[in-house]
Design a binder for these strands. Structure first.
Length: 716
RNA sequence: AGCGGGGUGGGGUAGCCAGGAAAUCCCAUCGGGCUCAUAACCCGAAGAUCAGUCGUUCAAAUCGACUCCCCGCUACCA
C-alpha cells in the first residue's frame, strides 16, 4: 500500500464551475483517486476555493456584494456541484479558511527566515483618481521605441518589446485615463532567480511528463527567472505577518497554491487544532508518496516552476511534484468557455438535467489530455446513445434480463477461459493507463471489454443454447455475468454511480468503492437471486435542430438570425479619456451589463444618453477602441451629417432580443459591415436581406429613429 | 511580433515523444446475420497520396527544415 497526494488547482470563487473546469481539472483527479483507493492505496486529495483573486473582486463589484460574500456564495455552490458530480476531496476549503490564513503566514515567515524573501523599494504608478497603485497591465502610454501610442506597461503590442511603466511617454491609467504618478512602495520579493539552476536540475528527469507540460516548463525556465513581488497594495487578502505592512496583502498567486500544504496540515490536525506531525509527514516528507497536481494549461508555470520553487525554498525537505498532468482546454462548440459571453454550461445545470455518469463518460472520452478538445451537445448525445447505452449498458442489460428470466439466479457453471483472459488483460491495461494518467485511453480500453462481451454473447447465442443444452446456456450466462462484474469494477473510477447500481444488481452487497480492483476476478456466487433489471443508462433525445445546419452554403448567407441584437438601457455615460469623438457607455442588457464605446460625442450630450433604450449588437467580437474595451456596438442611423439613435419602444425591457435575431455566435466587425441596415419607407429601421426589407421589431413593435430620419438613411 | 499547440477517409477523433506491412474508435453510407437486449447487438464493404514542399533513413502520419492555414497564450486576471 502506498500513499498518493493529489493537489487540484484551486478554482476561483467568482462563478459556478463549468464543464471546462470539470473535464480539465476535476474529473481526472477523481478518477485517479477512486482507482487508487480500489488498489488499497491511501489518497489525500485537497483543493479549495480561491477567494482572493482579482476576478472575485471584479465580479463582486458587478453583483453589488462584498468580495467575501460573493466568494462564499460560489464556494457553497461549487462544493455542492462537486459533490453531486461525484468528485470528492479529502479536504476542500477556501483561502478565507482561518487555518489556511494562519499557515500561509507561517510559511511566509519561514521563507523570510530562510532568506528567500526580501524587501525592496519599487516605484509603482499610482492613480489618484482610482486611488490605487496600478499593475503594469493597467498603464498605457507611448512606446519609447516605436512610438506606438497605446503601448501597455508590460509590453508594447506593436513592436513586441518588453516594457516597464516608467519608460512610457505620456502615461495614463487604463481604467480612468488620468495620469498616474510614481510612488515608492516597499514590497516583498521572492528570490526566484536563485532557484533557476536547482529547478532545471529537478526537471531534468521529468521525461514522463506530458509533452506539452514539459516543453512549456522547460521553455519557461530557459527564458530565465525573475524575482517576483509577493505582496501588493490592497486590503483584501491575507495580511503580511510582519509589522508595518498593514496596507498590503500577500499576492494571490503566492498564497493560493500554498493551499496544497495548508489543507494537508488541516487534515493532520485533530478537532482541537493539534497537529499530528507524523501524519502530515507521511504525505509531505515521505519519499514514497508521489505528489500529483491536476490543472489547466494556463496554470502550468505556477505548478511546475513557482510552487516547486516555494516548496524547496522552505528547506524542510518536503515532497516536490511527481507529475503535473495538466490538461489543455475544453472548448465549447469551437469557442473558449466564457461566462461573460454566455459560452458556458454549469455543472449545476448538468446534474439537474442528466445522469452525472453520462456526462462523466462523455468528458472522460473527450477530455483534452494533450490538445484542446471540443464539447458539443450533439456529440454528447451521440456518444451516450451509441457507446454508453448501446455497448456497455446493453451488454449488461441483455445479460441480466436473460439470466433473470430463464434462471432467476446466477447459474452454477464454469467461466469461459477466453473470457477470463479478456477480463484479465482489460484489468491490467486499464490500470496501467490510469496510473499513467492516460484516462482517455483507459476508458476506451474498458469499453473494449464491453464490446468483447457483446461479441461473446452473439457468438454463443444463449437463446439457441437454451433449447439445445441448458448447461451450455448456463455457462454462457455465467461468463457474461463475470464480465459484467469486471465491468462494474473497471468502470467504477469513471462511472461510480452506475457501477454501484450494477454492483448491487449482481447481488453484491455494500459499496463498490470498498471493493478492490482484484475483486473483478472473484467469481460471483452461484445461486444468488437476481432482481428484474432496470437499464443502467437512459437514451437521450438528439438536440433539437430548430434550424437546418447552415454549413451547405459557403458564402455566409445574410440572415437576421446571425445577428444578436438586443435592447439595452444606458445606465451611465462618460467621455472617453483618450478620444475626441468617443463616449463610453455602461449599458444594461437585463442579465448583464456591458461597456460600449460609441462615436456619438458630436451628436448627443452625455445626459441625453442616460436612461435611454438603445439597440445593441451583442455578438460582435469585443474590440479595444483607443484603449477602452467595447463589448458591442450600438446602432444609429445617419443621413448626411445628422446621426440618430434607433429608438426602440420604451416599454421594451433591457435584454429583450429583437424578433428574428438569436444569441448567435460571435462575428467579426467586417462581417457585420456586410449587412445592409437602413431606414425603410415607413420611417422604421430594418435590414435588407436578399432583396427584401425586413423591419426590426421587438415584441412585435417597430423601431423608429430618434430624430425621425427619412427612408434610406444608413444604419451602423 | 514572439512563443506554444494543431491541420489524419464525408464529419468528429486516436496514433506522433520511443519511425516498420498505411491507421483507432464513434457517427453517417452500403450489404449481410441475429432476435436475448433501451429498433439495441454482431459480421462485412466502400472511403484518406495522414495540409504542402524538401530532407534524414533500408523504412516517415511519426524525426528535421521551410511554406500555407486554424487556434491559444504573451508571467503582477493561476
Amino acid at each position: 500500500m502506498s500513499k498518493i497526494f493529489i493537489g487540484v488547482a484551486w478554482p476561483y470563487a467568482n462563478g459556478p464551475i463549468h464543464v471546462g473546469h470539470m473535464a480539465g481539472c476535476n474529473l481526472p483527479p477523481d478518477i485517479f483517486r477512486r482507482y487508487h483507493i480500489m488498489r488499497g492505496n491511501e489518497v489525500l486529495m485537497v483543493s479549495g476555493s480561491d477567494m482572493h483573486g482579482t476576478p472575485v473582486t471584479v465580479r463582486a463589484e458587478k453583483e453589488g456584494l462584498r468580495p467575501e460574500e460573493l466568494a462564499e456564495k460560489y464556494h457553497q455552490l461549487n462544493v455542492k456541484a462537486f459533490d453531486d458530480f461525484g468528485v470528492k476531496f479529502t479536504e476542500f476549503h477556501s483561502t478565507e479558511d482561518p487555518d489556511h490564513i494562519a499557515i500561509v503566514q507561517k510559511l511566509f515567515l519561514r521563507l523570510h527566515e530562510t532568506g528567500h524573501l526580501y524587501e525592496k523599494e519599487m516605484e509603482l504608478p499610482f492613480c489618484s483618481k482610482c486611488d490605487r497603485t496600478l499593475p503594469d497591465r493597467y498603464v498605457e502610454g507611448e512606446c519609447p521605441f516605436c512610438h506606438y501610442e497605446n503601448a501597455r506597461g508590460d509590453q508594447c503590442e506593436e513592436c513586441g518589446k518588453l516594457m516597464d511603466p516608467d519608460l512610457l511617454i505620456n502615461l495614463r491609467c487604463t481604467t480612468c485615463g488620468s495620469t498616474p504618478e510614481f510612488v515608492k512602495r516597499n514590497h516583498f520579493f521572492f528570490k526566484l532567480s536563485a532557484l533557476e539552476e536547482p529547478l532545471k536540475k529537478w526537471m531534468a528527469d521529468k521525461d514522463y511528463w506530458r509533452p506539452h507540460v514539459l516543453n512549456f516548463s522547460r521553455m519557461f525556465l530557459e527564458g530565465g527567472l525573475k524575482d517576483r513581488p509577493v505582496t501588493r497594495d490592497t486590503t483584501y487578502g491575507i495580511k503580511i505577518p510582519i509589522d508595518g505592512h498593514d496596507d498590503k496583502r500577500i499576492y494571490v498567486w503566492f498564497e493560493a497554491f500554498m493551499g496544497y500544504y495548508t489543507m494537508a496540515v488541516k487534515w493532520a490536525m485533530d478537532e482541537n487544532g493539534n497537529l499530528d506531525q507524523a501524519k502530515l509527514d507521511s504525505f509531505w516528507k515521505n519519499p514514497d508518496c508521489k505528489h500529483y497536481y491536476f490543472l489547466g494549461k494556463d496554470n502550468i508555470p505556477f505548478h511546475t516552476i513557482f510552487w516547486p520553487a516555494v516548496v524547496s525554498a522552505l528547506e524542510w525537505d518536503l515532497n516536490l511534484p511527481y507529475d503535473v498532468p495538466a490538461n489543455a482546454f475544453l472548448k465549447f462548440g469551437g469557442q473558449q468557455f466564457s461566462k461573460s459571453r454566455g459560452v458556458s454550461v454549469s455543472i449545476k445545470d448538468i446534474v439537474e438535467e442528466y445522469d452525472p455518469d453520462a456526462m462523466r463518460y462523455y468528458m472522460a472520452t473527450t477530455m483534452p489530455e494533450n490538445r484542446d478538445a471540443d464539447f458539443t451537445w450533439e456529440d454528447f448525445v451521440t456518444r451516450n446513445n451509441s457507446e454508453l447505452v448501446a455497448t456497455y449498458g446493453n451488454f449488461v442489460h441483455r445479460t441480466l434480463s436473460f439470466t433473470q428470466k430463464n434462471f432467476g439466479e446466477i447459474p452454477d457453471a464454469p467461466l469461459n477461459p477466453e473470457a477470463e483472459k479478456a477480463i484479465k488483460s482489460a484489468l491490467e491495461e486499464v490500470a496501467q493507463h490510469i496510473e499513467k494518467c492516460e484516462f482517455k485511453m483507459g476508458i476506451k480500453r474498458a469499453m473494449e471489454l464491453a464490446r468483447f462481451g457483446n461479441q461473446y454473447i452473439d457468438a454463443q447465442a444463449p437463446w439457441k443454447q437454451l433449447k439445445a443444452s441448458r448447461e451450455d446456456c448456463a455457462a454462457t450466462l455465467y461468463t457474461s455475468i463475470c464480465i459484467s462484474k469486471a465491468l462494474a469494477i473497471i468502470f467504477a473510477p469513471y462511472l461510480p454511480f452506475s457501477s454501484q447500481k450494477l454492483w448491487n444488481a449482481l447481488g453484491e452487497d455494500g459499496q463498490i468503492y470498498e471493493a478492490s480492483w482484484e475483486d473483478a476476478l472473484v467469481p460471483p456466487k452461484s445461486g444468488t437471486k437476481l432482481e428484474r433489471p432496470e437499464p443502467m443508462f437512459k437514451k437521450l433525445d438528439p438536440p433539437k435542430k430548430d434550424e437546418p445546419v447552415d454549413e451547405p452554403q459557403k458564402e455566409p448567407k445574410m440572415t437576421l438570425d446571425k445577428l444578436d441584437l438586443r435592447i439595452g438601457k444606458v445606465i451611465e455615460a462618460n467621455d472617453h479619456p483618450n478620444a475626441d469623438k468617443l463616449i463610453v457607455l455602461n449599458v444594461s442588457l437585463g442579465q448583464e451589463n456591458r461597456q460600449l464605446c460609441a462615436g456619438l460625442k458630436e451628436h448627443y450630450s452625455l445626459e441625453e444618453f442616460v436612461g435611454k433604450n438603445i439597440v445593441v449588437v451583442c455578438n460582435l467580437k469585443p474590440a479595444k477602441l483607443r484603449g477602452i474595451m467595447s463589448e458591442g456596438m450600438l446602432l444609429a442611423a445617419s443621413e448626411g451629417d445628422v446621426v440618430s439613435l434607433l429608438l426602440p419602444p420604451e416599454s421594451a425591457e433591457p435584454g429583450t432580443q429583437l424578433d428574428g435575431t438569436t444569441k448567435a455566435k460571435q462575428i467579426e466587425f467586417p462581417d457585420f459591415l456586410k449587412y445592409t441596415l437602413e431606414v425603410g419607407h415607413d420611417g422604421y429601421a430594418g435590414a435588407i436581406i436578399g432583396s427584401k426589407f425586413i423591419p426590426f421589431t421587438v415584441d412585435g413593435k417597430n423601431i423608429g429613429t430618434d430624430k425621425n430620419l427619412g427612408p434610406g438613411a444608413k444604419i451602423k
